[in-house]
Simulated assay, not measured.
Amino acid sequence: MNWPSEFYRYLEVERGYSKKTIEAYSRDFHDFQVFLNDSGNPDYLKVDHRDVRVYLAYLNDQAYSRNTISRKIASLRSFYQYLLREEVIEENPFTYVHLKKKNAKLPRFFYEKEMQALFDAVSGNTPLDLRNRSLLEVLYGSGLRVSECANLKRSDIDWSGEVLLVLGKGNKERYAPFSYHAKEALKEYLEVGRPKLMKKTDHDYVFVNSRGGALTSRGVEYILDQVIKKSSLDSQIHPHMLRHTFATHLLNNGADMRTVQELLGHVNLSSTQIYTHVTKESLQKNYRHFHPRA
């Protein structure tokens, strides 16, 4: 039995993991298998706690970051837990290996003036400008992941309720509200810009490339790179920064943590707590508002 392949199928079918996530699990197991082969003990079914300790030492010697090591160990722990569940092994050798991650870096985000600079960069009226403006409005205004945005279909837009039906991680659906600005931008793009880009292509995906094909996550990254180059900003951009910005601006303007958790589609509140940082602007605003001598 090819247990790694069975495990990846389990992650896809039963856990609903994305292809990208499964590829990460596959890489982690492959690296571990290479280590086992080099160490003269290639049978992954006979791994014990001693092998795990040696592997940890090896990873540290390779100068991997603590976060990377923690992720690799978590992947292998899940794989061996699957083997334990299937009664292939009697004990998970990774059970008692827990590494604390370093303090998480604060997520990078844009200030409101920087967001305005991005919107100014897509203020034209060409079909691509209309697409880019609506794309920016949805990513920032609804906090969608890039993959969620790329997979969005016209049938997922509830115009009267002003919400988007989003298929998130683990194939879990949620409703994400969109703003008045996003509504106007989407309508103009779908009625004017998109038909001109579609040409002979026909599908239901909202965001398309210049040839009418469905926009990929990589395509979204490319578009945002071009937008930042056209703007007055000199910083780099990654699509997830807009999701970070969405959450940060909500919290800085008074939204509660549970609401932001629901809007982001986080299963655990701990995933949302990284956004509890506040900007200097917000600190100054609250200081002036609450302190009697300010």
Results as ranks from 00 to 15, higher is better:
K196G: 07
H30G: 01
S155H: 14
D61F: 01
E262G: 08
T126P: 10
L99F: 03
S18N: 03
V267G: 03
L106P: 05
D38C: 10
L130N: 07
Q62L: 12
S65F: 00
K229G: 00
S78L: 07
N67R: 14
H291S: 04
L197F: 07
L186R: 05
Q284A: 12
I69N: 01
G161D: 03
Y205Q: 04
K46F: 13
G265L: 05
Y80H: 08
P93R: 11
K72Y: 00
V192D: 10
V13A: 11
K105I: 15
K169I: 07
Y180L: 15
E184S: 11
E14M: 02
I228W: 02
D28W: 06
L136P: 08
S179W: 07
S231H: 13
Y222H: 13
S179F: 08
C149K: 04
L99Y: 01
T126E: 11
K105F: 15
T216I: 08
S147V: 13
V227E: 10
K199Q: 12
V122D: 03
L283P: 12
V267I: 15
T201M: 09
E91P: 00
M1E: 12
E12V: 04
P195N: 13
L128F: 07
L250W: 04
I22A: 07
H291N: 03
T248G: 03
L242H: 01
I89S: 10
A104P: 00
V220M: 12
I223E: 10
K102P: 11
A182I: 09
Y205I: 09
E262I: 13
N151C: 11
E162Y: 10
Y222V: 15
G254H: 08
S134Q: 10
V208E: 04
L59T: 08
V206H: 03
